[in-house]
């Protein structure tokens, strides 16, 4: 259970850092602010709208929070030399990677719970029809999203030998998978068809297109989220696979498969990070 001690120490350490409080403060502002928007717009179904705004904020901020919290987790200890304490004590390198993932996840959980508690207050005050289960589901989703980006960042952090490389790696992955990834299926489509696809509203996309799109962590998470946050009633266009692809929805575009992709985005980066860290020469 060494990883539990490492996680606890890491949480205590991170909890005394400015990061946690900045993250929590930012989340509270976002959650409270975004959930208040529907009341200003005086829309119908304000609770559903509030959740939708909340989800948008979470999807924007949590990846950055996860990457920021994670990128220095392991390599920071290598640079400061405290890794010599960690590994001079009877801890395995697996304990270190697991402990870090767990400790930082706890930071995300605490920050999210506090922020969502404030958000719940705002929503209960402004709107009728608070659906506790939907709200908790979105909170759980937030934590899972945090876990995905923490895993990516800690995987990178465990793989490299300097903070600079960790920043470059994390930024590179973020830009590749969350910024430019959309253009990958677009490019393939253009090469095959000689024209640009219509992404939403028409239901004419080939199934592979949506699959490639969903290989990005952000898109896979969104595919799961639209089941939790009932955006179908809220958004004017159909965002689900059924509304986007031509013909039957194949199994790999069902929500559970998006869940598999999400799990892979948690498991694979941390596994690669561990594999590289376990062979690292710590001189």
């Amino acid at each position: 259970m060494s990883w539990a001690h490492i996680a606890r120490k890491d949480f205590a350490d991170a909890g005394r850092s400015l990061t946690l409080w900045v993250v929590t403060g930012l989340l509270i502002l976002l959650v409270a602010g975004m959930t208040a928007i529907p009341s200003l717009l005086e829309t119908e179904e304000p609770f559903g709208q509030a959740l939708y705004f909340l989800f948008s904020a979470v999807a924007l901020v949590i990846p950055i929070v996860g990457l920021l919290l994670g990128y220095n987790a392991v390599v920071g200890e290598r640079e400061s030399g405290s890794i010599r304490f960690l590994l001079g004590l009877p801890n395995t390198r697996r304990d270190v990677v697991w402990g870090k993932l767990l400790g930082r996840t706890a930071v995300v959980v605490v920050a999210s719970v506090v922020a969502f508690a404030v958000g719940a207050g705002v929503i209960a005050w402004l709107y009728d029809g608070f659906v506790v289960s939907d709200y908790l589901a979105l909170l759980a989703f937030t934590v899972v999203m945090g876990l995905v980006y923490l895993s990516i960042a800690i995987g990178v952090s465990a793989s490299v030998s300097s903070r600079g490389k960790a920043i470059a790696g994390v930024l590179g992955l973020f830009v590749l998978f969350d910024v430019v990834w959309q253009s990958v299926p677009m490019g393939i489509y253009y090469l095959l068809e000689g024209s640009w696809p219509t992404l939403y509203g028409e239901g004419s996309l080939p199934a592979w297109f949506v699959l490639v799109e969903r290989l990005s962590p952000g898109q896979a998470l969104s595919a799961v989220a639209i089941e939790i946050v009932d955006v179908i009633d809220v958004a004017e266009i159909d965002l689900t696979a059924a509304g986007r692809v031509a013909g039957e929805v194949p199994f790999y575009l069902e929500t559970w498969f998006a869940g598999v992709i999400v799990i892979a985005w948690i498991a694979v980066p941390i596994a690669i990070g561990y594999a590289r860290f376990s062979r690292a020469v710590l001189n």
């Binding site: 350490d13 030399g81 010599r84």
Partner: peptide, 13 residues
């Protein structure tokens, strides 16, 4: 028991 060389402490602990 290990007293390492060039170790770093956890500044906040």
């Amino acid at each position: 028991g290990v007293l390492p060389e060039d170790f770093g402490v956890y500044e906040r602990l």
